[in-house]
């Protein structure tokens, strides 16, 4: 129910209604809750409203964090797994 779908803004009208592209399908949504959004931005859309801008950069950072995980918990995992992780990122 709280699902929000990533969508790309194609155009915006004067009433803050946007045409968005959702995996190739064209839909409309309101930008009232994300008024700073611009054409070309990606937004999360929930029940007809954009609720969040999404940054492509952030996705990349999240992934990088996953790779660092073993290193974060060195105390519990011992050095071997940490070394493995370093090898992978090297």
């Amino acid at each position: 129910m709280c699902l929000a779908v990533p969508s790309k803004i194609v155009s915006i009208d004067s009433m803050l209604m946007a045409t968005v592209d959702v995996m190739g399908i064209s839909r409309t949504c309101s930008l009232r809750l994300v008024p700073q959004a611009r054409v070309g931005d990606y937004v999360l859309v929930h029940a007809g409203f954009a609720i969040q801008l999404i940054e492509e950069q952030e996705a990349a950072e999240t992934l990088a964090l996953f790779h660092e995980l073993p290193g974060l918990f060195e105390d519990e995992l011992g050095e071997d797994l940490t070394a493995e992780a370093e090898q992978r990122t090297a």
Binding site: A4, R32, L33, V34, P35, L44, I51, Q52, I54, E55, E58, A59, E61, T62, L65, F73, D75, E76
Partner: peptide
Amino acid sequence: VQQKPAIENAYSRGVNNNGNLTA
């Protein structure tokens, strides 16, 4: 395991720590 409970955000591509202020 570390007995260090905290609140973390591991979904930064969809969530700002301060939330959506307009909403």
